Amino acid sequence: LDINLKELVELALNNYSNLEFNKEEVVNSIMEFFKERIKNLFRDLGIRYDVIDAILSSEINDISDMYLRATELNNWLGKDELVEMLTAFNRVSTLAQKAVSSDVNVELLKEEAEINLYKEFNNIKIKVKELLNDKKYSEALDSFASLRPSIDDMFDSVMVMDKDEAIKNNRLGLLKQIYDTMLSICDLSKIVYK
């Protein structure tokens, strides 16, 4: 069933408005319980543990949708350039955690590689959003993965952690935007590869 689990839990808890409790804490506890149940269910269905972790890292409350994403990601992991893609997105993920915000000031983009990545990302971001709306997760992953050469180029030719604080934060902001878009599909940094 295509149902928002979190909304369902919140709706059920509204029936207990006569009791004193922290609704947000209870909702989070119940959602954690369901996450553990979903992990076990998906494992029983033959989905890799790292794929499950990648899907459950995103804010998705629809179990049916989670399963669809998990099966498509499970299949998508057979790609030829998988190791290169995951390496690039792991670097993005690691640096994005250091960002103070996801704001990007275009005027602070000085290097050709970062300008190209910014432009390409903004084109892909719109396409990824449309594909996600249509539940075409494998195509969204393909579209997102097409950023890899530009990401590699930026890491090869640009010092992200620049001495100039504004430039550094701007570059981290760009990486954070890319990371946040990745999370709308799944967290590729959770995928284990050999």
Rank of each mutant, 00 (worst) to 15 (best):
residue 15 N to H: 10
residue 157 S to E: 14
residue 6 K to N: 03
residue 65 D to W: 05
residue 118 Y to E: 13
residue 160 V to L: 13
residue 21 F to L: 09
residue 34 F to Y: 15
residue 158 V to C: 03
residue 54 A to S: 14
residue 90 N to F: 02
residue 183 L to F: 02
residue 192 V to L: 04
residue 153 D to T: 10
residue 159 M to Y: 03
residue 55 I to C: 07
residue 175 L to Q: 03
residue 65 D to Y: 08
residue 27 V to F: 01
residue 136 K to H: 03
residue 162 D to A: 11
residue 33 F to S: 08
residue 94 T to H: 06
residue 174 L to T: 08
residue 14 N to W: 04
residue 12 A to H: 08
residue 174 L to I: 12
residue 49 Y to P: 07
residue 99 A to T: 05
residue 83 V to T: 09
residue 121 F to S: 03
residue 154 M to H: 02
residue 157 S to T: 15
residue 53 D to Q: 08
residue 100 V to F: 04
residue 69 R to I: 15
residue 94 T to G: 04
residue 177 Q to G: 08
residue 15 N to E: 13
residue 11 L to S: 15
residue 77 L to T: 10
residue 165 E to M: 12
residue 8 L to F: 13
residue 72 E to H: 06
residue 131 L to M: 11
residue 127 K to Q: 14
residue 192 V to A: 02
residue 138 S to A: 11
residue 12 A to L: 14
residue 161 M to P: 00
residue 20 E to P: 11
residue 131 L to A: 06
residue 82 L to Y: 03
residue 192 V to W: 00
residue 135 K to F: 04
residue 45 L to S: 08
residue 81 E to Q: 10
residue 188 L to N: 00
residue 139 E to L: 09
residue 115 I to P: 01
residue 84 E to P: 00
residue 16 Y to K: 10
residue 87 T to W: 03
residue 4 N to H: 11
residue 155 F to A: 07
residue 151 I to L: 09
residue 166 A to N: 12
residue 161 M to Y: 09
residue 151 I to V: 11
residue 176 K to H: 06
residue 43 R to C: 07
residue 65 D to Q: 13
residue 140 A to S: 11
residue 181 T to V: 04
residue 182 M to T: 00
residue 186 C to T: 14
residue 57 S to C: 14
residue 20 E to I: 13
residue 96 A to S: 15
residue 60 I to H: 04
residue 184 S to W: 01
residue 27 V to Y: 00
residue 92 V to Q: 02
residue 113 A to I: 09
residue 188 L to A: 02
residue 34 F to W: 07
residue 1 L to A: 12
residue 190 K to T: 01
residue 162 D to H: 10
residue 88 A to I: 09
residue 79 K to N: 13
residue 102 S to A: 13
residue 121 F to G: 03
residue 33 F to Q: 06
residue 176 K to S: 14
residue 122 N to M: 12
residue 167 I to T: 12
residue 78 G to T: 14
residue 66 M to I: 09
residue 14 N to P: 09
residue 131 L to F: 10
residue 169 N to P: 08
residue 28 N to C: 01
residue 31 M to R: 01
residue 90 N to K: 15
residue 143 S to L: 04
